[in-house]
């Protein structure tokens, strides 16, 4: 059993580049990005807005074709979206005309699962996430946190190899966000599924991930890859630990540099003064 899980959900993005055609010729959105997700690993991508982290995610989902490079999942090239790669969207994207249960059952219905097993699976998943009382409600009557719980459960219901999350908690308030992070971690640990998580929230990335990729400003490229050695299960209190804070400082300065670049070169020198950070005795440059 554990053997199967170990080999499932290996994502490999190699020398990925994507550019959009414009009148001035191809405009690169992402260049030369290589990332990988080991089976069962939780990996985040952080970067300033517009750096192409969502582009990368959408390429793994199969919505965008790479201009150069390759995207493979378990050795197979990604060719269009599929239920193998479940996705959680920032805007929840629940079907308003389906009840909570209908939304969760959707993917299984597409797989032509019979009604009884669909029903059973949906109820189990809704039970785990505390949504049983809302199974017959329409999404419009749910709070943001509930909607996104449904979004996560819906994506997991088809048993995907990889879960792709596009800033899923970006629209939630701080308290709900923390709870949702716990729920997602719990689900991930139960199912041992690979996760690719895109966010601009550094705390979120560190708290959730095994590894974090940091992207540069547009055109996006991978600037750094940082392992998060915090032990699991992770507790809220860890966010105050010196280890966490050190990781946070490191990532923060990486991102800040890129955000400033994205906003315009002239202010970057000024703002970067005095930003030399030590991490576990390594200098900032070593981490990069």
């Amino acid at each position: 059993m554990s053997d199967i899980k170990q080999t499932r959900g290996h994502v490999e993005v190699r020398d990925f580049g994507l550019s959009y055609p414009t009148l001035d010729g191809p405009m690169p959105a992402v260049t030369n990005a290589s990332i990988h997700i080991n089976p069962g690993e939780f990996v985040s991508i952080v970067g300033p807005s517009g750096c192409g982290k969502s582009t990368l995610l959408n390429a793994v989902a199969g919505f965008l074709k790479p201009t150069v490079g390759s995207v493979t999942v378990d050795g197979e090239a990604v060719d269009g979206p599929s239920a193998e790669r479940g996705m959680v969207f920032q805007q929840y994207s629940l079907f308003p005309w389906k009840t909570v249960k209908g939304n969760v059952e959707f993917g299984m219905k597409m797989k032509h699962l019979d009604k009884a097993s669909r029903d059973r699976a949906a109820r189990t998943l809704l039970g785990i996430t505390g949504l049983t009382a809302f199974e017959n409600k329409y999404p419009d009557s749910l709070s943001g946190g509930m909607k996104q719980r449904v979004g996560i459960v819906r994506a997991l219901a088809t048993g995907p190899k990889v879960l792709l999350c596009d800033e899923p908690f970006g629209a939630l308030d701080a308290q709900t966000r923390v709870i949702m992070q716990q729920i997602l971690t719990n689900m991930w640990q139960r199912l041992k599924i690979s996760v690719l998580f895109v966010t601009h929230d550094i705390d979120e990335a560190i708290f959730l991930s095994d590894r974090v990729y940091c992207m540069t400003a547009r055109p996006g490229a991978i600037k750094a890859e940082i392992a998060i050695p915090l032990e699991r299960p992770r507790q809220q209190s860890m966010m105050m630990s010196s280890e966490f804070l050190a990781l946070r400082r490191g990532l923060m300065s990486l991102i800040r540099e890129e955000s400033l670049k994205a906003m315009g070169g002239e202010i970057s020198d000024l703002a970067l003064e005095g930003l030399s950070i030590d991490m576990h005795g390594q200098s900032f440059a070593d981490v990069v």
Binding site: A61, F63, G80, P81, S82, A83, R85, G86, M87, F89, Q91, S93, L94, F95, F106, G107, M110, K111, R154, A155, T158, L164
Partner: peptide
């Protein structure tokens, strides 16, 4: 909403 179309594709809809 094109995002709903994409959501359905990610869930295996053709």
């Amino acid at each position: 909403d094109p995002v709903l179309v994409r959501a359905s594709q990610c869930l295996g809809a053709r």
